[in-house]
Design a binder for these strands. Sequence first.
RNA 1: GGCGAGUUGGCGGAGUGGUGACGCAGCGGAUUGCAAAUCCGUGCACGGGGGUUCGAUUCCCCCACUCGCCUCCA
Length: 456
Amino acid sequence: MADIRLWNTKTRRKERLDPIDSGNVRMYVCGPTVYDRAHMGNARPVIVFDTLFRLLRHVYGADHVTYVRNFTDVDDKIIRRAEESGRPIGAITEETIRWYHEDMGALGVLTPTHEPRATAFIGEMIAMIAGLVADGFAYEAEGHVLFAVEKYAEYGALSGRSVEDMIAGARVEVAPYKRNPMDFVLWKPSTDDLPGWDSPWGRGRPGWHIECSAMSLALLGESFDIHGGGNDLMFPHHENEIAQSRCAHPEGEFARIWMHNEMLQVEGKKMSKSLGNFFTVHDVLEQGVPGEVIRFVYLSTHYRKPMDWTAEKARQAEKTLRKWYAQAAQGAAEGKPYVGVVNALSDDLNTAKAIAECHQLSLADDVSTLRYTLQLLGLMEDEVPEWAKSPDVDLSEHEARLAAARAAAMENKDFSEVDRLKAAYLAAGVEVRMSKGGVELVPGDDFDAAKLEASI
RNA sequence: GGCGAGUUGGCGGAGUGGUGACGCAGCGGAUUGCAAAUCCGUGCACGGGGGUUCGAUUCCCCCACUCGCCUCCA
């Protein structure tokens, strides 16, 4: 069995993955707040952890991995969106979840084992909060329930901060009912016009962080193997999750290995609406960039490094993928992924190295291994994607015509007709291959049948 | 101000205490009527300064620059 080593943010070291139960390897990844289309940045952790999910399934068996990625469907951003649009919250979240599945599916992302919605686990959240209050880790104040960070000595360990330092930074929300400025909300009151659930502290709704603690407990248990997300979540979200879960269940370990991906940039700059470089995944797909190309570009940078999305990278990725797909299409029905790629992925998900190994498979023309390796990487399913298939057209008459013209030209040394035909074919997106062996016409991805007929 | 990440050839991007992958582009060659495609070959880099070491791009320190987080933005 391959030895999987992963960088653990918590210990700041690469550690060997030693599953608590190798018959059920468990991973939790923070999913989206569903109020709008997923943007290109959102897609990075999705692709990164999907690739890890695929590796785990390959190593431990598809039935021995449990992957949980939540939907946050109760949140102030959603409430705001509902107020702005006049649409019901449920309609917004349902629509957004549907979009999410469509867009991520286009990127070759597998559906996780469980995709829990926060609103389906309110009871579990209330139970956990009640326990924290009962044990003195949390307190009620003005309808809110707050976690008292001073009660958890290791608060800040994940992100390398101390409560004192953070207070000195003085960029925390000022709220008079907080005992410590760093205390965070577990439960907050809802007015009648806002979504709310009955609780021991009155009608209200959960704070953001508690859902992940409650849902990971319900679906993965007190201790599980991997917890992932973007590094912007490291503080405060993950720090707060740890505090809640460890205090609620001190006998559990919560997550053993914490993984965080770096952020995405666009053409060297932070993606932002004001810079006009803000794209949703849907936008990019609509522009005609195939999902496999997006995925390839993401995989070409290691997940712990900042990644720059550029049009040039997409162009090169498409070129490479077309070449590989043409080879993979010839692969045998049975095969296995390349061990060099499995090893690269096993070394802290070195996807860039994995792609380099694929180049070697391509060079060696090992079409079957390439095929199953691309499948492991999520770059193709059973078949080559439609967009990468050659247009199904019969150019044999044109080939014969060009061959005849060429033969004649060889005799009389007048190549004008050959050159004219060649130029016309090229203009119509047909690749012209002439050699001693004969003439071959290959329709390219920009093949235009109408243009071909018009110009010949 | 605090915490963290990064700085490798023209571009992208791995990696290592001792001849620095791979891809794209470039250059040379084979091939071609000329090309294209393909194949073969090839030049080019470890931000700056110290230190440890027989030897550092790789370890340590300092500096510069870039970026992220600290505002429930992945």
